[in-house]
Structure formats: C-alpha cells, structure tokens
C-alpha cells in the first residue's frame, strides 16, 4: 500500500524531478521532526504544543495525500478540548499516529533510495 501520493506535488512543477526529490527530502525531515515532537509533547501532556505540531504537518498531510486514517487520527488529537485530562484513553490514537509516521518515513526513504 502506498502511503503517499505525489500527484498534487507534481502539478507544481510538471516533469521537474529535482524539485520532486528535494520536496520529498524536506517532507522526510519535516516528518522526522514531527515524530520527535509528538513523542516528546504527548508524555508531557502538553496539548497546546501537540496542537502546534499537528498544525504544522497538516498542509503536507493534505498535499501528499496521506491515508484518511492518519488524517482522522491527527484531527482527533488536534480537536481535543483545552481542559482535556484523560490522556490514557487517547494513547491508542497517538500510537496509531506514531506507527503511520514511521511507515510513511520508511516509504519516503525507499522512494529516495530508488530515485536518487
């Protein structure tokens, strides 16, 4: 299963392979940072920080058409109420986000290896 789709990105600069590769490299860096941030902020119960982190990644999730499930999981966490305290009940969603992120990263790395 392909976890990302380049069709929208390709529209920005059709046929420009260098642009495509550089964009994917930047996406990979962004996702690595996102993964680190989520893993740091969630145990600290920093909902504001988590929201900011998710907010930053959202345009890329949309642009690279990551799976709907991933989008929904991010949306659920992003939409948690300010006064939310029941972190444990959402551990499963955070776990889902972490797994998806790792899988997407794997795919991006594979793509880069094959195309560089």
């Amino acid at each position: 299963m392909e976890l990302f789709n380049l069709s929208r990105l390709e529209l920005y600069s059709p046929g420009n392979k260098a642009f495509l590769i550089r964009s994917i490299e930047l996406l990979r860096d962004e996702l690595i940072q996102f993964d680190e941030n989520i893993r740091r902020e969630w145990p600290q119960r920093n909902l504001k920080g988590i929201r900011q982190v998710i907010h930053k990644i959202k345009p890329s999730v949309e642009l690279f058409q990551f799976p709907e499930e991933y989008w929904e999981a991010l949306d659920t966490i992003y939409g948690l109420d300010e006064n939310f305290t029941d972190y444990q009940s959402f551990e499963v969603i955070i776990e889902k986000i972490n797994i998806f992120t790792s899988k997407i990263l794997d795919e991006l790395n594979t793509y880069l290896k094959l195309n560089q």
Partner: peptide, 15 residues
Amino acid sequence: DDVLMVHILEELLSE
C-alpha cells in the same frame, strides 16, 4: 518556518 512550503512557493514564483 515551514521549509517545505517555502521550497514550493520558491518554485512557483520562479515561473
């Protein structure tokens, strides 16, 4: 501060 979005915008503007 989003380097990917800057990269995309740079490309679009270059045209």
